[in-house]
Amino acid sequence: MKQLGVLFQKEWRENLRNYKIFWIPAVFILFGIMEPVTNYFLPQILDSVGNLPDGAVIEIPPPEPAQILAAVLGQYQLIGMLVLILAYMGTIAGERKSGTATLLYVRPLSFTSYFLSKWMIAGLIAIISVWSGLLAAYYYTFLLFEQVDFVKFIQFAATYSVWILLVVSIVLAASAALPNPGFAAAVALAVVFLAQLGDGLLGAYWTVSPVKIPNYAAQWLVDGPVRADFWWALGIALLLIAMAVTFGVWMSRKNAADTKV
């Protein structure tokens, strides 16, 4: 564990110097702001593009602020996750493939510290991105529409953070297990999207799936999810995160011999 600090510093420097610490949150903030703004201007946009006869009035009921925040999650579920998966697909596979890992692996390296340092920094940046993006969305929704109860917002964002941490854990485990970054990204994407697809098709019958966490997060904004279902899903998600991390540590040790010498 003494190595954790040393390795975390290395990862921190990498993410600072390849600007991931800046551009990933910037993307999340951008999509967070754009959702309430487009909603605000939607009547005008429809007005200008729609060739309606004079005098026709479009009546669009103003959206509920909770709906807008939930729609931001919808953006993150697609673009946000794609960005995170692509940004961190090479974390371990890339180091092995380029051979930069060799000079670490030849030392008495703790693979637990090695994997954890990478998991911590990717998780940290993902959480910073999600929170800054959602806070921006919250603020804009407040300015353009109405205020959402702040406690509800905190519950909403915290719940979604668990899901995004699960996604990050899956990417890093895939990067530890697979021979190259592209393969790792493909598998991580497949796992995440197939799980969502499966839940969409069959999930009506079980309510404790961790894939439902984004939905539960959005439900906090209104009246909250069914408590028992929510806590079970959350517990299972945390368990899956722990399993992905353990698997990642094990795979990064097992695949160390594949580093380019």
Partner: peptide, 15 residues
Amino acid sequence: GIGFLPQHPQFFPWL
């Protein structure tokens, strides 16, 4: 302790 120099050592370019 052991020191190892590969034929083509690769470094983290940003360090």
